[in-house]
Design a protein around this nucleic acid. Structure first.
Length: 311
RNA sequence: CGCGGGGUAGAGCAGUGGCAGCUCGUCAGGCUCAUAACCUGAAGGUCGUCGGUUCGAAUCCGACCCCCGCAA
């Protein structure tokens, strides 16, 4: 007998997880709660969300709560779920809503909780130079990402992992494990383990912003700058000022300056045999941008960029 | 009508009324043990599109198309 499941989610990764549950005969997605379509992009056009389109194609009812408490109780009356599953939803959900279904509400979070509670755990883990992160499947409580842990899956962070590549791996892994984990939970084979609140760390949406993506060549170490480049993809993209314009750095590598001995101040540019280098606050390390985009221009390789500039 | 930058050779750019240019790439040849090196030569353009001004427009004016940075 399939479990009547109410799914909460808003973005691409929420959609992938939804698909895997929707295909899984153990679960019956009775409805989806998602964010209403909002104007996006340069022209502020309203783009229909992929998750809404998927729901329409598969005849799954879509419901909007719009952060209103009464809408949550309406949803319970309407769909009477036995289980709530939440991934990347984007609203603070009332506690009693989470407790109502027989099998409660379960959230999927991309970190090894209690580390990196909050909105941007993948980016923050990369920024911090972590070598490992993972997926935590937790029972939801009123406090954000603080509920007892049902299961965790570890994933190593490679030295060239970006927010995009790491996220893709985590989503893939998530779709592989979510069905079995939920089934074990429903069958009472899992004893939730409380988080150690004392070792909790947090990350906020505001940690990933255009402001935070501006490279401060004096303060940040070369290693931190290289991690910024990887963490801020695909948005907002690490950037620096270049001749009165923004230069976004899409890809870069850290290079050892001890053999080359190029003399550059922090943030100063130079080019050498088709390669672009920027000085850091450490004289023996340089940042070598590989792919860049100057304001008003398209993304191009560093060598292409050099050809159009005088150094 | 939110603000702004841009469209010129395959790529990246300069050129703001008077012969269409630069760097890289491509092709041919040379030099070299060899090379992403160096030398010589060549090909490659409807200057986004349409219209206007002018003896003459990549350049000035108008309209439109497309790309991008902000802002949201």
């Amino acid at each position: 007998m399939a479990i009547k499941t109410l799914y909460l989610g808003s973005n691409w990764e929420a959609l992938e997880t939804l698909k895997s549950l929707d295909r899984d005969s153990r679960f019956d997605i009775s409805a989806i709660i998602t964010q209403p379509d909002k104007p996006k992009g340069r022209d502020q056009k309203v783009i229909e969300s992929e998750i809404k389109l998927y729901a329409q194609e598969h005849d799954i009812p879509v419901f909007y709560t719009r952060n209103k408490e009464e809408r949550y109780s309406e949803a319970l009356d309407l769909f009477k779920p036995d289980l709530i599953v939440c991934k990347s939803f984007g609203e603070i959900i009332p506690g009693d809503f989470l407790e109502a279904p027989k099998f409660k509400a379960i959230n999927i979070h991309f970190s090894l909780l209690p580390k990196y509670r909050g909105a941007v755990p993948i980016q923050k883990a990369i920024l911090d130079g972590e070598t490992e992160t993972g997926i935590s499947i937790v029972k939801m409580v009123a406090e954000l990402d603080a509920g007892p842990i049902l299961a965790q899956f570890r994933e190593s962070i490679k030295t060239d992992d970006t927010n995009e590549t790491l996220r893709k791996r985590l989503v893939k892994r998530c779709t592989d494990v979510i069905g079995d984990t939920l089934e074990k939970w429903i069958q009472g084979q899992i004893k939730p383990e409380e988080q150690d609140d004392k070792s909790a760390t947090y990350c906020w949406k505001a940690d990933i912003s255009k402001e935070k993506a501006e490279i401060n060549w004096q303060e940040k170490s070369a290693e931190e700058i290289e991690r910024m480049v990887r963490a801020f993809l695909p948005w907002p993209v690490a950037w620096t000022a270049f001749r009165e314009k923004r230069l976004k750095i899409f890809k870069a590598q850290l290079v050892d300056n001890s053999t080359m001995q190029v003399n550059l101040a922090p943030g100063q540019f130079t080019s050498q045999s088709e390669r672009l280098f920027i000085g850091t606050n450490s004289s023996d390390k340089l940042i070598q941008p590989i792919e860049v985009q100057l304001e008003g221009k398209t993304v191009m390789s560093a060598s292409e960029f050099i050809r159009g500039q005088e150094f």
